[in-house]
Simulated assay, not measured.
Amino acid sequence: MNTDSPAGEERLTRGLRRLVRASELGIAALAAVVGVIAGLVVVAMNLAWQGLHELIFRIPTGTHLSVSTGLSPALVLLGPVLGGLAFGLCVRAFLRTGANPPVDPIEANALHGGRMSLRDSVVVALQTLFSSGVGASVGLEAGYTQAAAGLASRIGRMFHVRRADLRLLVGCGAGAAIGAAFNAPLMGAFYGFELVLGTYAIPAFVPMMTATFTAALTQQMLAPQHHLALPAIDAPGLVDVPAVLLLGLLCALVGIAVMRGATLVEAGFRRSHLPVWLRPAAGG
Rank of each mutant, 00 (worst) to 15 (best):
M1C: 04
P6D: 06
A7C: 05
R11G: 01
L12I: 07
R14V: 06
R18H: 06
R18M: 03
V20I: 14
A22V: 10
A29G: 06
A31G: 03
A38N: 01
A38V: 05
G39Y: 06
G39I: 00
L40F: 06
V41L: 00
V43M: 09
V43C: 07
V43I: 06
A44G: 02
A44V: 08
N46S: 05
A48H: 00
A48R: 00
E54M: 05
E54W: 01
L55D: 01
R58H: 14
I59W: 09
P60C: 04
P60S: 04
T63A: 06
V67T: 15
P73A: 05
L75K: 03
L75Q: 13
V76F: 05
L82T: 06
A86C: 09
L89G: 04
A93Q: 12
L95D: 08
L95I: 07
R96P: 07
D104N: 13
L111K: 05
H112E: 09
G113E: 10
G114R: 04
V134C: 11
A136H: 14
S137I: 09
V138A: 15
V138M: 12
E141M: 12
Q146G: 05
Q146T: 09
A147N: 02
A147F: 08
A148Y: 03
D165R: 14
D165C: 07
L166S: 01
V170S: 07
G171V: 07
A177T: 10
G179D: 12
A180S: 11
A181P: 02
N183G: 08
L186T: 00
L186I: 15
G192L: 01
L197T: 01
Y200H: 09
A201E: 08
F205A: 15
V206S: 05
T210Q: 01
A216M: 14
L222Q: 06
H226W: 13
H226Q: 13
H227Q: 11
H227Y: 14
A229V: 15
A229T: 15
D234E: 14
V239I: 12
V241S: 10
P242I: 11
P242L: 11
V244D: 08
G248Y: 10
A252G: 13
V254W: 04
T263M: 14
R271N: 05
R271S: 06
L274K: 03
W277Y: 12
A281P: 10
A281W: 13
